[in-house]
């Protein structure tokens, strides 16, 4: 895993896309969502990181001919229309970048605790509850299995290899 940081351009473009891609209730979480995307990208192959960063520069500059300003400065309806143009864009590269942004941002959006809470998704207490239940109800079986893991059970009974060191 390599350390990855958004460039200023990438950060601003992504920040401007939060209202386009995330649900309205997530817009206030924009900075956290964009930061979370950096964590995800940091775990991905470098070629993907570079491609994504390059794509965001192209996305940013691509708005100039149409709107006389960069994509990072577009707001509201214009930001929406410009993203939609990429989403249904003329080449697969346009479409893949738009899809990639959507996927990464949606992932990061619903990794925010506030968003999980809105859905009623609370896995940590559930994990704690079922872990405790397992160790209580099935304690003896669990201990037996743990012991079995280490108990002698040679694949070839009676055989113990003697190493011959050179």
């Amino acid at each position: 895993m390599t350390a990855y940081r958004h460039s200023d351009t990438a950060r601003q473009v992504l920040r401007s896309l939060v209202p386009v891609i995330c649900p309205p209730e997530a817009v206030l979480l924009g900075d956290a969502i964009v930061e979370h995307m950096a964590l995800t990208l940091g775990a991905s192959p470098q070629v993907l990181q570079r491609g994504f960063a390059t794509g965001l520069v192209a996305y940013d500059l691509g708005a100039l001919p149409r709107y006389a300003r960069r994509a990072r400065s577009l707001r509201g309806e214009r930001a929406e229309r410009y993203y939609a143009w990429w989403e249904h864009g003329p080449t697969s590269l346009h479409r893949q970048l738009a899809r990639g942004i959507n996927q990464l941002m949606s992932l990061s959006c619903y990794e925010q605790p506030e968003m999980m809470e809105r859905l009623g998704y609370r896995p940590a207490p559930w994990i704690a509850e079922v872990t405790q239940r397992r160790l209580t109800v099935y304690r003896d079986d669990v201990q037996r299995q743990d012991a079995q893991i280490l108990a002698p059970d040679p694949l070839r009974p009676g055989v113990r290899v003697k190493r011959e060191r050179a």
């Binding site: 386009v20 891609i21 995330c22 209730e25 899809r99 996927q103 990061s108 959006c109 990794e111 859905l119």
Partner: peptide, 25 residues
């Protein structure tokens, strides 16, 4: 799958994504 993994598989975005994800449970 957890909501984040599911959300990234949907083509929807914006308010449509939010409406869809309300059905997560």
């Amino acid at each position: 799958m957890p909501p984040s993994i599911l959300a990234m598989s949907f083509p929807q975005r914006g308010a449509q994504l939010g409406q869809l994800m309300q059905h997560y449970d």
